[in-house]
Design a protein around this nucleic acid. Structure first.
Lengths: 190, 190
DNA sequence: TTGAGTAGACGCAACGTCCCGTCTACTCTA
DNA sequence: TAGAGTAGACGGGACGTTGCGTCTACTCAA
């Protein structure tokens, strides 16, 4: 039920497409995700999709950025260890147990085959996520809890990298104990 | 130019297929990799491929396991730090700058969409690689350089995870300094 | 004569493009 | 100011293309 509009696209159609793509990915997986399927599920003509998105991964990326990118903000309790454990636990849950995480994993995977997508994912999500990951470290540095010359980017990689590695590569479970040990040992070595 | 053979398949055809798949992946990327393309490049009929491999990812996996899996064996100089720096540097080069690494990245990516492939990649490569990654740590533990109660699996994840994270997710360069700092700080926190 | 090989046609699914007719909001003119 | 005209997004659906995986027919050497 579209409403003709000379000036500008239909927000209703746009949202229906994003939601359909998101739902179908979670339900059937990336391999079964087709443009025609998205169109049908969204109640939208295929041409409407091609008019606004170059490919299905662009739909997924927009859906991901729209409703899921901002949720991984670390807390600020004044206690670095506690903040990191909470934050890394949230990242682990995101990666392994959330719908948004499933979309992220699909995008990261497609990024391996598609450099343009990888670049967009980095520019429009990972750089911002990196900034969020650094926040607890920066605050701790300001408090004097971390040495002024500590390299926070490297530190962030060392905290977050093992989680992505387990979630995306080995598939090992990320336990509470693993996160706790990761934080404890990493801070001990800083 | 086939050679009829009542007893067993043609090793020549098998190798030609594996090499063609490998080459085409590196040259054109995974998105452009097709069974028909592999058959043509290998000088083999499509049916010959389907007779022996269920899908193109199985071809890639076999190619990867055949000629590239064993190269990431860490050295044993008796000096843990040196061994780890050498080993992690080799892993980084493998992931970011080798043909075999390109195949691995493609397989890891496809594994996100295909649980059976992911399981095979883990069973037939990652578990063995994990064992290799642990070797320097086990030797150091035996030498008393690492505490007996150190969790070597976690330690291996903390060493190797950040490399995979950079190579597969963020795309950041992995510098010598990064590896050195990773090893130094990780051992300091153990 | 058996089994692995080549050659290539086939039906299927999804791709991305194209055209159609419909709908609405705006604009222009009588 | 009312009615006709126009622009642009939409749903619907046909189209040619590509790659998939299957199938049949034939070849060749042990």
């Amino acid at each position: 039920m579209h409403r003709g509009n000379r000036h500008g696209r239909s927000e209703q159609a746009r949202l229906a497409v994003l939601e359909a793509a998101d739902d179908l990915l979670v339900e059937k997986g990336f391999a079964a995700l087709t443009v025609e399927g998205i169109a049908q599920r969204a109640g939208v003509a295929k041409q409407t999709i091609y008019r606004w998105w170059p490919s299905k991964t662009d739909i997924l990326l927009e859906a991901f950025l729209t409703d899921a990118a901002e949720e991984l903000t670390p807390p600020d309790t004044g206690d670095l260890t506690r903040d990191l454990v909470t934050h890394l636990t949230a990242i682990s849950r995101f990666l392994t147990a959330s719908d948004a995480g499933a979309v992220f994993r699909a995008l990261a995977a497609e990024g391996q085959h598609n450099p343009r997508l990888a670049a967009r994912l980095r520019a429009e999500h990972l750089t911002h996520q990196r900034a969020r990951d650094r926040q607890p470290l920066e605050r701790a540095q300001r408090r004097g809890e971390l040495p002024a010359e500590a390299d926070l980017d490297t530190l962030a990689d060392r905290l977050v990298g093992p989680l992505y590695y387990r979630a995306l590569v080995t598939g090992q479970q990320i336990t509470e104990a693993f996160v706790a040990q990761l934080v404890r040992a990493t801070l001990a070595g800083a």
